[in-house]
């Protein structure tokens, strides 16, 4: 239960980090807070020869609002995001999701970008990025590219990142006025990985849903955007019947797998129930935020 031999690098700049990744390729692994990577290394499920710690890079530890979005650098810890009131107000789905990630002691070390780059299908932050149409700013030896969250999360622990690339910044769009969000999940123990989970952010104006963003975790090889639910909700009222229809339509499209913890049918049923709850709560918060704004 100890990591195999490894060489640790703590570059001070993105260019230096990218240089190390370019030099060592598959042998190197980017290290954020290490809250997913270190357990894998202890269990010898991962044995990188080099670690490139990006949390000491100047400028990547900031949470900044720019052009209608919040930018979070690769060194931003989950607890730091959780404690940022301006970020919570602007990105309510992120604020709703963060407390579900393991426990505070893990969020004190774990980074937002690290969770996205790890790409666990049962993790909360990939679903948040997907639902919000986040942009991921990726640095590599071939330059800088911006990748849409839709398409970034490919399969089990597989993302659009190349081994020599670094996820430097995630850009989360600010929610329109009158938005509310909720994140509901089912886990065997608070803080465990979710058997199924749903994040929803609704924007309401005069009782009508103007924008619906919904994503599910734990029900596939990657987080799943619940487009059927979004379409069922947009332009209508978030009443009991519409929410039930939206959740049913989205659950019918899911193709969850079966494992030790739950059957596929149970996961689909759980996702539908969690989605109904999340949508009700998000709608209530959106209406309340809309009243405060006006």
């Amino acid at each position: 239960m100890k990591p195999s031999p490894v060489t640790y690098h703590a570059p001070a700049t993105v260019a230096e980090a990218v240089g190390l990744l370019a030099e060592h390729g598959d042998d190197a692994k980017v290290l954020g807070g290490g809250q997913s990577l270190l357990p894998l290394m202890n269990l010898r499920l991962a044995a990188p020869a080099r670690l490139v710690d990006v949390t000491r890079i100047d400028g990547l530890g900031a949470i900044e609002r720019r052009d209608g979005a919040f930018e979070l650098g690769a060194a931003v810890r989950q607890a730091q995001a959780e404690d940022d009131a301006a970020l919570a107000a602007a990105c309510p789905l992120l604020a709703a999701a963060l407390p579900h990630i393991a426990h505070r002691e893990i969020r004190n070390a774990g980074t937002v970008c690290g969770s996205l780059a790890h790409g666990d299908a049962a993790a909360e932050l990939p679903a948040v990025a997907l639902a919000l149409d986040a942009e991921l700013v990726v640095h590599g030896p071939r330059g800088v590219r911006t990748v849409a969250a839709d398409g970034f999360f490919r399969s089990f622990l597989e993302t659009a990142l190349e081994p020599d690339e670094l996820l430097a910044v995630v850009r989360l769009p600010v929610a329109p006025p009158g938005s509310g969000a909720a994140f509901h999940e089912l886990a065997r123990r608070a803080g465990d990985f979710a058997i199924a989970g749903v994040g929803a952010q609704l924007t309401m104006r005069d009782g009508t849903v103007t924008e619906a963003r919904v994503a599910c975790i734990g029900v596939g090889a990657a987080p799943v955007r619940a487009r059927a639910a979004e379409q069922a909700l947009a332009g209508g009222r978030a009443d009991e019947r519409t929410i039930a229809q939206a959740a049913r339509a989205a659950a019918a499209e899911l193709e969850p797998s079966e494992d030790l913890h739950a059957s596929a049918a149970f996961r689909r049923h759980a996702a539908e129930t969690l989605m109904r709850r999340a949508l009700h709560e998000a709608a209530a918060r959106a209406e309340s935020n809309g009243r405060e704004a006006s």
Binding site: M1, K2, P3, Y8, A10, L31, G34, Q35, L38, P39, N42, L43, L51, D53, T55, A79, A102, H103, R104, E105, I106, N108, A109
Partner: peptide
């Protein structure tokens, strides 16, 4: 547990509680 689940290794780094079994000593430099 050595993989961050049981909490018995919890210490504070810069005033924040973290799991010392899933943090390398060099990360705390």
């Amino acid at each position: 547990c050595s993989h961050g689940v049981c909490g018995s290794c919890t210490v504070h780094v810069d005033g924040r509680a973290v799991r010392s079994c899933i943090m390398l000593a060099v990360q705390a430099d």
